[in-house]
Simulated scan of single mutants.
Amino acid sequence: MTSRVVVLTGASSGIGKAAALAFAARGDRLVLAARGLADLEKVAASCGGSPLVVPTDISVRAEVEELAEAAVDRFGRIDVWADTAAVMAYGKFEEVPADVFDHVVTTDLLGSANVARAALAVFRRQGAGTLILCGSLLGHITAPYMSAYVTSKWGLRGLARTLRQETRDAPGINVCQLVPGSVDTPIYTSAANYAGFVGRPPPPVDSAERMGAGILRLADRPRRELSVGAANRFAELGFKTMPPVYDALVGPMMGRLGLSRRRAVPDAGNVFRPAGRVEGGPARWGRLPVAALAATATVLASTTVAVGVRRLRRGS
């Protein structure tokens, strides 16, 4: 297979950075975009091969259109566009400032819509192309203290499905969605925070590299959706089949597993502008209490057992 032209929005860290390195290792030609130029240039240096670097805020439609034009001017086409750009805010809905909530949705949902609009315009002219949108397990379930992010990812899931329906007339165009569970990325420490404690990915936690490999898989063999996360199916099962139990447990578990014990003062984080990023990792998150890990295992096991019992009763 000849090398592809790949545009990556959100390429400065986390999943986007991991995807950039995976595509570079394969020999693809890259266009790297994110808000922060300094971090983008570091990623570009790690990729080698002189990627095109275009600082871009996906929440600004004109910047996304300029990014698409720059990619086509440089390489003549776009074969794959993967969007992993996202921001996050912690806190109860009533305590998160309205402008912070709105801008999370603007970036994570409307920004992805800007990307989809620009990418599909190029793909229509070419007659082919693959769009990969980065969703989340939180586009399939809900969790307290993350209302803006959950709202965005549920909306993005609906957008992705609608785009697949609307591109059925173009067999060469693929619209895919990666669905990560908990991932070790800087998004948690960079997030706006009105919850009182620094956020962290609840266990089990996957590496950004595993998600980057998932994006590469979707580019190589497009499919509607790829869920990557050991607990994803269990969480979805509990959410769909036992709503009262799920709703009773998710709050305490989020407070125990999704928030660290490190205090956080109210702050908008990187929602409105790039901020210094701190990579994650076990040392950064701190050790999760054994009781918390045991609680996770217990909930997953009880969910499986309860669903099994329900199915047996239906069959009897």
Score class of each variant (00 low, 15 high):
71 A>N: 03
71 A>F: 01
73 D>E: 11
74 R>L: 02
74 R>Y: 02
75 F>Q: 01
77 R>K: 08
78 I>Q: 00
78 I>C: 03
78 I>W: 05
80 V>W: 03
81 W>K: 05
82 A>F: 09
83 D>S: 15
83 D>C: 12
84 T>S: 11
86 A>Q: 06
87 V>I: 12
89 A>V: 03
91 G>V: 04
93 F>D: 08
93 F>C: 07
95 E>R: 09
96 V>K: 01
97 P>Y: 09
97 P>W: 11
98 A>G: 07
100 V>R: 01
101 F>H: 11
101 F>K: 10
101 F>I: 14
103 H>G: 06
104 V>S: 03
104 V>G: 06
104 V>E: 00
105 V>G: 00
105 V>W: 04
107 T>W: 02
107 T>P: 08
110 L>C: 09
111 G>W: 01
112 S>F: 05
115 V>C: 12
115 V>K: 06
115 V>S: 04
116 A>E: 05
117 R>P: 08
117 R>V: 09
118 A>C: 11
119 A>W: 07
121 A>L: 14
121 A>R: 15
122 V>S: 13
122 V>T: 12
122 V>L: 11
125 R>K: 14
126 Q>E: 03
127 G>C: 09
127 G>E: 05
127 G>I: 07
129 G>W: 09
129 G>P: 10
131 L>W: 11
132 I>E: 03
136 S>C: 12
136 S>L: 13
137 L>T: 00
137 L>F: 11
137 L>H: 05
138 L>C: 04
139 G>A: 11
140 H>I: 08
141 I>M: 07
143 A>Q: 12
143 A>M: 09
144 P>S: 11
144 P>I: 10
145 Y>K: 11
145 Y>N: 05
146 M>R: 05
151 T>H: 03
151 T>C: 06
151 T>N: 02
152 S>Y: 04
153 K>H: 06
154 W>M: 06
156 L>D: 02
159 L>A: 02
159 L>W: 07
159 L>P: 02
159 L>S: 00
160 A>L: 00
160 A>R: 02
161 R>S: 08
161 R>T: 08
162 T>Y: 13
162 T>D: 12
163 L>F: 08
164 R>P: 07
165 Q>F: 15
166 E>G: 12
167 T>S: 14
167 T>E: 13
168 R>Y: 13
169 D>S: 15
172 G>T: 14
174 N>E: 15
175 V>F: 11
176 C>T: 06
178 L>A: 02
178 L>E: 03
178 L>C: 07
178 L>K: 00
179 V>F: 07
179 V>D: 04
179 V>T: 11
180 P>Q: 09
181 G>T: 05
182 S>C: 14
184 D>T: 12
184 D>K: 10
185 T>S: 09
185 T>W: 03
186 P>F: 01
186 P>C: 04
187 I>P: 04
190 S>V: 09
191 A>E: 04
